[in-house]
């Protein structure tokens, strides 16, 4: 899947996460900023990388502003942002599980 326009999902509220995606020509660039970086930074990055891989996102810019969201929230927000900003045809919903 390819990101074709700027899009956003989530909020800056506590326990949520704000995800912003935008198109770019270069390779995928992911930036994760988290209030719980020290405890969970690595885990959050794993969830983000895994979710993007399942969505087959290989290019674009993804910015994740985490406010201590649970993994399932991070997944959901990422999926929503990518689906809003992506060129989606015949989505295979099973990849979102």
């Amino acid at each position: 899947m390819k990101i074709i326009k700027d899009a956003m999902a989530g909020t800056l509220e506590s326990s949520d996460v704000l995800v912003k995606v935008s198109p770019s020509d270069g390779p995928l660039e992911v930036v994760v900023k988290s209030e719980v970086e020290r405890q969970f930074g690595e885990q959050i990055r794993r969830v983000v990388a895994d979710t993007l891989a399942r969505l087959t996102i290989n290019e674009g810019v993804v910015i994740v502003e985490d406010k201590g969201a649970l993994d399932c929230t991070i997944r959901a927000r990422l999926q929503a942002a990518v689906l809003r900003g992506g060129a989606v045809e015949g989505l295979d919903w099973s990849i979102l599980q």
Binding site: D6, A7, M8, T11, L12, E13, S14, L18, K20, S22
Partner: peptide, 22 residues
Amino acid sequence: EHLSLTIVDKVIHLAYERGHSH
């Protein structure tokens, strides 16, 4: 009390709705 954060969050969402992402 998170109100400052909430108001900025609302402004960011409004900006996106109005076509401004940067």
